[in-house]
Each structure stands twice: as C-alpha cells, then as structure tokens.
Design a protein around this nucleic acid. Sequence first.
DNA 1: TATCAATTTCGACGTTCGTAGAACATCGTA
DNA 2: TACGATGTTCTACGAACGTCGAAATTGATA
Lengths: 123, 123
Amino acid sequence: MPRPGRRREAPHYPDTADIDLLDVLHALADPTRMTIVRTLSVEPERACGTFPVDVAPSTLSHHFKVLREAGVIRHREEANRRLTMLRAADLEERFPGLLSTVVAAYRGEAVEKVAGGGEVREG
Amino acid sequence: MPRPGRRREAPHYPDTADIDLLDVLHALADPTRMTIVRTLSVEPERACGTFPVDVAPSTLSHHFKVLREAGVIRHREEANRRLTMLRAADLEERFPGLLSTVVAAYRGEAVEKVAGGGEVREG
DNA sequence: TATCAATTTCGACGTTCGTAGAACATCGTA
DNA sequence: TACGATGTTCTACGAACGTCGAAATTGATA
C-alpha cells in the first residue's frame, strides 16, 4: 500500500549526531558527487536533473543516495521534482569547518577532472 | 643491479602542487588510514610497524602506499626501519585548514570503528 | 484517461578496494 | 656468514563501487 504525498519511499536521513566522518569523506571523494556539493555551495537548492554532470539519470540518482545517506544533502519535494540542498548547518554542527574547508579546497582544483566538465557560475 | 642506500625503489611522492583533493579525501576515508593520520598528528614520526592498527604487515604497507601517493605522508629511512610522518606543511599550503579540520573531526569520533581499536594517547 | 517529464529501483557488468599469505629484500647483529 | 627484524612486492579473492539500460512510479498536463 503506497502512501501518497511522497515519491516512493521517504528517504532515510541520518541524525546530525549520527553523521559519520568517514562516510562523509567517502561521499566527497568522487568527482561527480563533489561537483554536486560544490554547485550546492553556490546555489541553495537545485532540481536533481539540472546539475552540471555528465552521467545517466540512474547513476546520478545513485550518487544522490550516497550523499544523502552520508548526511551531506537533503531533498525537498516540489511538484514532480525533488529539490536538493546541502545539510550545511548540520555538518557545521557535527564537524565544524569541514564542509567549507573541503569545498574551498575543491574550488581551487582544476575542473578538467570533474565529470562532465560543465562549469557552473562560481558567484 | 640493486642500488644501495635505499630500501628497494625510492617511493614516489607527488609534488605539493600536484596533490589532488579527491585522492586525499579517498585516502582519509578509511578507518585504518585515518588512524595512521591521527596518530601522526600527535606524534611527529613513527616506525611503520608500531601503529595501533590490527592488520597484516602487507595490508599496512598497502595503506601506506595509498597515503603516500595521495601526498598525505612521507617516509624517512633510518637503519632498517622506515619512519613515517605527515606532510602537514605541504597539505596546509595546498589545501589550507583541511588536514587539521579533518583530524579534529576524527578526534571526536567514536573509536570503536577504528581498525584494531587500539587507543593511542591523545596527548 | 492517456501521455509526458522527472526520478528511483533493479539487474548487470567491469573496475577498484581492502585484505592476507608467501616470497623477497635490506639492515643490524651474533 | 647466518640469522632475525622490518617492510615491500606479488598474487589472489570476495566485497564494494561507478556505470548504464530497462522498468516502474509519481505529478502535471493534454
């Protein structure tokens, strides 16, 4: 009996206190996922299909799952789309300075290695 | 014709400018390797076989290789042992604040997940 | 109601990873 | 020279990973 109001199963998010550092580091250690995070660090929220990455939708969905279960992102339902945003405040509470430091480090990286190579305005 | 003065091949270290963020994050996203790094953050250098981890020597050697090629550690030959130290200054130059932030975050983590569980004095 | 657009789930495939045992190399010492 | 201590390399193996296509689901729209 599928419940209405949610797209399939409601995703499971770890509590802030349960966010694991190694899970976060592993989630960030991938060019596609890092591109997602960097994009969200500039834009507060964004629809799943609009990220500047060059992978199949199913692959992208997989990366969202990794980031979600690591506690890095959260989704918000809107119509038939799902908006993604960073759990920046939660991460800041759990691991102070971590997210901003990592994102800042990635800003300086060469972009050629990023999946898709599509650049996003760095505001 | 084996050359004297060095234990086998001289390890290859990336230049500071060539250290890749994703490689570093991947290297740190493992309990055994994170334990090595945390230990070195308290003690400046340490012989390879003396880390509080519970893996076979060959496995440990593999982890050192990952950390070395990511640019996180450096070795120093001494007699028939090899001392390991962090490339803290290089990492600070390449990715300011990254190493200290990550290590600080790991300090607060539960230790049960650490390979071997052997605790080290946290000074 | 049929259809489209957005996204997830499932199954499959090839690659990388963490692990350990066996063999080897090097240094210090008996 | 022989031996023990210290690490590394090689090989192998199961698990996890990144990738995709096909199918399914949901909300909006025709």
